[in-house]
Amino acid sequence: MTKIKEFLAKKGVGFYIMLGAVLFAFMGVIAYSVSESSATGRGVSPLIVVMLVLAIVAGLAFCWKDFLGFGPIVLSILLSIALGAFIYTKFNDFTYVYYGVGTDGQDAKLSAALLSSTIFFAVMWLAAIASAFVKSEKTGANKEAKK
């Protein structure tokens, strides 16, 4: 517990934002997989799942130690690929909801699933970018560590 406190004491706002991005990526991959695996889903895109998993792994690694400060950059790129693929594969669903035409009366289902997935993906992407703007380690923390 003490070690965790010490660990967190060194972390800046960027750490928490990056951690948030990882969390939303985790929620996103679950929501996406469940939604697309259902009978009326379209099936998961392997690219999206792989990118999200890589982002989660990389994100956790960079949260533990922000190697040369590349964390936000790597996270942004991985999550952007996932988001881009999401937009690409779900475009027809966006259009469908936009035009307000329902399939077998399931507007609500489609909209709810699409909305929740979109929110997760958008938040994780924005969080990854935002984490690049702020410190992930408190100033002096590294110097302290090296003493």
Partner: peptide, 28 residues
């Protein structure tokens, strides 16, 4: 330090924008 963070922020933002723009382009 600030400059490094600035470049990091720009790199992250523009990389993200580039990837998403590329996806949108491929879709288009």
């Amino acid at each position: 330090m600030f400059k490094k963070r600035l470049w990091r922020a720009l790199a992250a933002t523009l990389s993200a924008v580039f990837v998403v723009t590329l996806s949108a382009s491929l879709l288009a």
